[in-house]
Amino acid sequence: MRDAFSRCHPVVNFTYFTAVLLFSMFFMHPVFLGISLAASMVYAIWLNGGRAIRFQFLYMLPMLLLVALINPAFNHEGMTILVYVNDNPITLESIVYGVASAVMFVSVVIWFSCYNAVMTSDKFIYLFGRVIPALSLILSMVLRFVPKFKAQARVISNAQKCIGRDVSNGNLWTRARNGVKILSILVTWALENAIETADSMRSRGYGLKGRTSFSHYRFGQRDKLLLTTLGLLIFCVLAGALLQENSIQYFPYIKINAATARSVLVYTAYFLLCMLPVGLNIWEEWTWRRLYSKL
């Protein structure tokens, strides 16, 4: 599916994900957790479609259960003892806490799956090209070499097969040896050929003073608007965090602030922040429909 947010300026993408990921990692309040999990799932499904649904059910659901179980197994704090297992108390608080941390972990992983779809390598290289020029060039080169080397590894393993060294047969040790042979051929090939790459770089003036960094991204009006919105929402959430709107106590007993008008405001800001890309997509969809209906 085409994602409108992916087409925004990398600075907007990166600010959004940094904020959302950090908030998701540190807010243990159930409302915040719920918003983050729900928004991450919706955006992941928007981005990756059926693959995201499969991923969430096949991997994230068992992961959630597993992580939720780990905590009560090792953490015996809390006042409300439900049952004793091997003389260890299992408490209500630690179960709730386990579920909360599981939700947190899972939503972080799902957010990262969205991050991976939106923040492609060239956006990353663009963002850091000025700060760490040499490393971001290395990054770009490694990304160029990896597919090349993988293809060559396949060529080499076919060539090995054609001289009677079928690499997929034999016991573990033989296979490891065959693998190392392929790798060894690949290493020579890669190193010897890369010298020409270095020549090509220097031939095009790499190493001159004052290297700049080109990108085809443009920071437009919409990006400005989005970034301002992001900033406002982040400010609201942070202010809420300072005012303890996101705090909750799990041990020794669960204590949570009652919802007030102010806290609802902070929840809304967090919800809007998390749903920003989805909102943008809906907005764009709606604009298109309207344009078409006029035609």
Partner: peptide, 23 residues
Amino acid sequence: AREIVVISVLAALAVAGRVAFFM
């Protein structure tokens, strides 16, 4: 340039090297 190339090649080999052990 040469240093950058060598580091990139070695890092890419480390990443791509897994393909050599597909079996």
